[in-house]
């Protein structure tokens, strides 16, 4: 009845079934989570991600309805489709969570992030940085003789692209807000 040969290695001795972890391809999903605005809710949501080993690529949170006590948490996460489904189910069942929307699957959405770039330099590098900022429609919000701060709003990919270009031109610091997102249409 039983095949009694045990393979060498730690896994056959483990108390757990150690599964092949990545059988499917990971996808990036943007989730909008509408929560009760009360103390500890953000910690509970983040705790779910750390406790169950899910990824957070970006997270933004702010109150969006003062009278209704609602906050909106926008989370960009990565995982196989099964993991994404599980994240959505785990979020939905939390007591202070009112609604969860997977903006990546629920149709087209607008995703925007704000970033501030501090670039220091002189001469040609400084001129080139300013020219690139203009091409990306970034605004200059602070300027000294040796530095600029550019402000840009756009998709995370656009911000990544500008960061890549500015890095050799004296990019000193980068601050990003994380993604805010809404589904398109009424």
């Amino acid at each position: 009845m039983s095949a009694l040969n045990i393979k060498k290695g730690a896994s056959s001795h483990s108390a757990y079934d150690l599964r092949d972890s990545h059988v499917e391809v990971e996808e990036s999903h943007t989730l909008a989570v509408i929560v009760e605005n009360e103390p500890g809710v953000l910690a509970r949501v983040i705790g779910l991600f750390s406790g169950r080993g899910y990824n957070i690529d970006s997270l933004t949170v702010a109150e969006v309805d003062h009278t209704g006590h609602r906050s909106r948490i926008t989370i960009v996460t990565r995982g196989t489709p099964a993991v994404i489904d599980q994240i959505e189910a785990q979020l939905s069942r939390m007591v202070p969570v009112h609604a969860v929307h997977d903006l990546t699957v629920e149709g087209p959405s607008v995703q925007r992030e704000l970033a501030l770039f501090k670039v220091a330099g002189k001469g040609d590098a400084r001129i080139e940085a300013l020219r690139l900022a203009e091409i990306f429609r970034a605004k200059v919000v602070d300027s000294t003789l040796e530095s600029f701060i550019f402000e840009i709003t756009g998709t995370p990919e656009k911000i990544d692209a500008l960061a890549e270009l500015l890095r050799p031109l004296g990019l000193r610091e980068l601050a990003r807000t994380g993604v805010a997102a809404l589904s398109r249409g009424a």
Binding site: M1, S2, L4, S11, S12
Partner: peptide, 15 residues
């Protein structure tokens, strides 16, 4: 059922 084994590889006392 030693962990990591499927149901049909159950051990009985004789095994």
């Amino acid at each position: 059922i030693p962990s990591g084994k499927p149901h049909n590889e159950m051990l009985l006392s004789a095994d």
